[in-house]
C-alpha cells in the first residue's frame, strides 16, 4: 500500500478485464475486498466470481445498493442493435437480486443522443425496478440543443449547478458529481471550480470516519489519458476526500471493469448495459467493440455494492447479463 495518492503513476498498475492477473494485483484485490475476491482465469481473462469466505453466496448483511451505467438508449449500431433489450435484461437482473437493494445509482450515458424519446424509454424501463434511482449525467446526456436542458429538466430537481448533489443513507455520505460539462480543448473530463468549491463545503462538517461513496460518469482518476479516460481536476476532488477512512469511487464511461485500491480509496468502473469498449490501448479508438452476439451479454452487466458495518471496505460484485 502507498501513503501517497498518485493516480497518474498508479493507473498502469490497475487491473482491467483483459490484462493478466499480476501478483501485486491479486494482493491488492484481496486487501480491497476485505475477505478477498475470488478470481479465476478464463481464457487468460481474469473474472470476478464473487466474494470469498463469509460473503460468498451469502445474503448480504449490510445495506446494499446497485449501480448501472451507460445504457445508451438510442444506440442502434452493430455493437448492439437492441440497447433497450439489453437494458431490459439488466433491469431483470436487478429485480432478481435476493436482498432488496436500498436504491440504484446510474452513472450516466442514460441516452445516446439526449433525445426526449430516449430519455422516456430509459425512464420507463428503469422504473420497472421499483427502486429510487440517483443519476449523474454522461456526455451523451448533455448533447441536446439546450446543452443539458433535457437532462436537468428530468433529473436536476434538488441538485446544484449542472446536476451535482449529495445525500446520506445508512450513515454513508453519497456524492454525485458531474464531469461532462464545459470540457476544454485538449483536456479530459472536468469538474470545474464551482463544483470543487461546493464539494469542499459539502465535506466540511463530515467526520473523518464517515464512509464516502462518490460517483460520476467519467473516471475521476486517469485510466487512460490518450482516450480521454480521466478527469483533469479529479485529483483536486480526491485530495479533498483523502482524510476520510473509507472512500469508494464509482464511475462508468469506459464500458468495462477497471479497479484499484489506493490507501483508503477504492476505485471501480462499471460495465455498460449496452456495448463493451476495448481495453485501454488495444484498439485504434475507444469506440464500441463489436463482439460475436453470443459473447455480448458476458460483457454487459450491473454492479451490486454492499456496505458492511464496522471499518470493512465496501464489497462490489459485478454481475454480467449472461455467462
Amino acid at each position: 500500500m502507498h501513503d501517497e495518492f498518485n493516480p497518474a503513476t498508479e493507473a498502469s498498475e490497475a487491473e482491467d478485464e483483459s490484462s493478466g492477473l499480476t501478483r501485486r494485483g491479486a494482493l491488492t484485490c484481496m486487501v480491497w475486498a476485505g475477505t478477498g475476491l475470488l478470481w479465476t482465469l478464463s481464457g487468460g481473462v481474469p473474472k470476478s466470481l464473487g466474494l470469498l469466505g463469509d460473503a460468498l453466496a451469502a445474503v448480504p448483511t449490510g445495506f446494499t445498493f446497485l449501480q448501472i451505467s451507460d445504457s445508451h438508449i438510442g444506440f442502434n449500431k452493430p455493437a448492439n442493435p437492441d440497447a433497450l433489450g439489453t437494458l431490459r435484461e439488466a433491469i431483470g437482473k436487478v429485480k432478481a437480486v435476493k436482498s432488496r437493494p436500498a436504491f440504484m445509482i446510474h452513472t450516466g450515458d442514460i441516452t445516446h443522443l439526449s433525445k426526449p424519446d430516449e430519455f422516456d424509454n430509459a425512464d420507463q424501463l428503469i422504473s420497472e425496478a421499483k427502486l429510487d434511482v440517483h443519476y449523474v449525467p454522461g456526455e451523451h446526456d448533455f448533447i441536446d440543443e439546450g446543452l443539458g436542458k433535457a437532462y436537468l429538466a428530468r433529473y436536476g430537481n434538488g441538485t446544484k449547478g449542472q446536476g451535482w448533489y449529495s445525500f446520506d443513507d445508512h450513515g454513508v455520505h453519497f456524492i454525485g458529481l458531474v464531469n461532462v460539462v464545459d470540457l476544454k480543448a485538449g483536456g479530459l473530463g472536468r469538474l470545474g471550480p464551482d463544483q470543487l468549491a461546493w464539494l469542499a463545503d459539502d465535506l466540511k462538517d463530515k467526520s473523518d470516519s464517515t464512509p464516502i461513496v462518490v460517483f460520476a460518469h467519467i473516471p475521476l482518476w486517469t485510466v487512460y489519458a490518450d482516450w480521454g479516460w480521466g478527469t483533469d481536476d479529479g485529483l483536486q476532488a480526491l485530495t479533498l476526500l483523502k482524510r476520510f477512512g473509507s472512500v469508494t469511487v464509482l464511475n462508468g464511461h469506459i464500458h468495462q471493469i477497471v479497479q484499484k485500491v489506493e490507501g483508503n480509496m477504492t476505485f471501480h468502473t462499471a460495465r455498460s448495459t449496452c456495448f463493451p469498449q476495448p481495453a485501454p490501448g488495444t484498439a485504434p479508438s475507444p469506440g464500441p467493440m463489436t463482439v460475436p452476439a453470443e459473447q455480448l451479454r458476458s460483457m454487459l452487466g450491473i454492479a451490486s455494492v454492499e456496505v458492511r458495518t464496522g471499518d470493512k471496505p465496501l464489497a462490489i460484485t459485478d454481475t454480467p447479463l449472461a455467462g
Partner: peptide, 11 residues
C-alpha cells in the same frame, strides 16, 4: 483551433 466538445482530447 477546434476540438470535439464531448471528447475534448480530439483536437
Amino acid at each position: 483551433e477546434y476540438f470535439c466538445a464531448i471528447h475534448p482530447h480530439m483536437t
